[in-house]
């Protein structure tokens, strides 16, 4: 069931209200919090757009890496247990790449302007060119 406006459109409308209408009329701490709220809604918009494909890719990599089935939560918990026990480390084939791709997707949703994301993407480009 899908009604219009979509979830993404509703959140965009709320964010644009905060940015274009509310923030200019606010001052001090409240203005600051309105900006933080607008940024939080922007995270939600990006997660709606990018999130499903990112989660699907993460799930596929984890299934292959761990050679078992489960929910994303279960597989991540299982991966953590194997890293913690020393059973898997950065030399485990595919693991470093999985961590890199998964984290890049997370930051693309959470903080796309963060400098560390640019560093990671620049290295990926360089790696791809080699």
């Amino acid at each position: 069931m899908m009604d219009k406006p979509t979830l993404a459109e509703i959140i965009t409308a709320a964010r644009e209200f905060l940015e274009n209408k509310a923030m200019p009329e606010l001052t001090g701490r409240t203005a600051f919090h309105a900006r933080v709220a607008a940024n939080a809604l922007a995270i939600a918009e990006r997660e709606i757009t990018i999130g499903p494909a990112a989660a699907e890719a993460e799930h596929a990599r984890l299934t292959l890496l761990l050679n078992r089935h489960g929910t994303l939560e279960e597989l991540n918990a299982a991966l953590c247990a194997r890293i913690s026990s020393g059973d898997m480390d950065l030399d485990t084939p595919g693991l470093a790449e999985h961590l890199r791709l998964t984290t890049i997707d997370k930051v693309r949703i959470d903080q796309p302007n963060y400098s560390g994301l640019k560093t990671a993407l620049a290295r990926e480009d360089r790696g791809a060119a080699v």
Binding site: L90, T103, K106, D110
Partner: peptide
């Protein structure tokens, strides 16, 4: 506060920094 909630999502900034340092 929305500020507290939003900072929770900044955890991933450190994840990408760690990826850059370790990998």
């Amino acid at each position: 506060s929305v500020e507290r909630a939003a900072i929770g999502r900044r955890s991933s900034e450190n994840e990408i920094d760690l990826v850059n340092l370790l990998i």
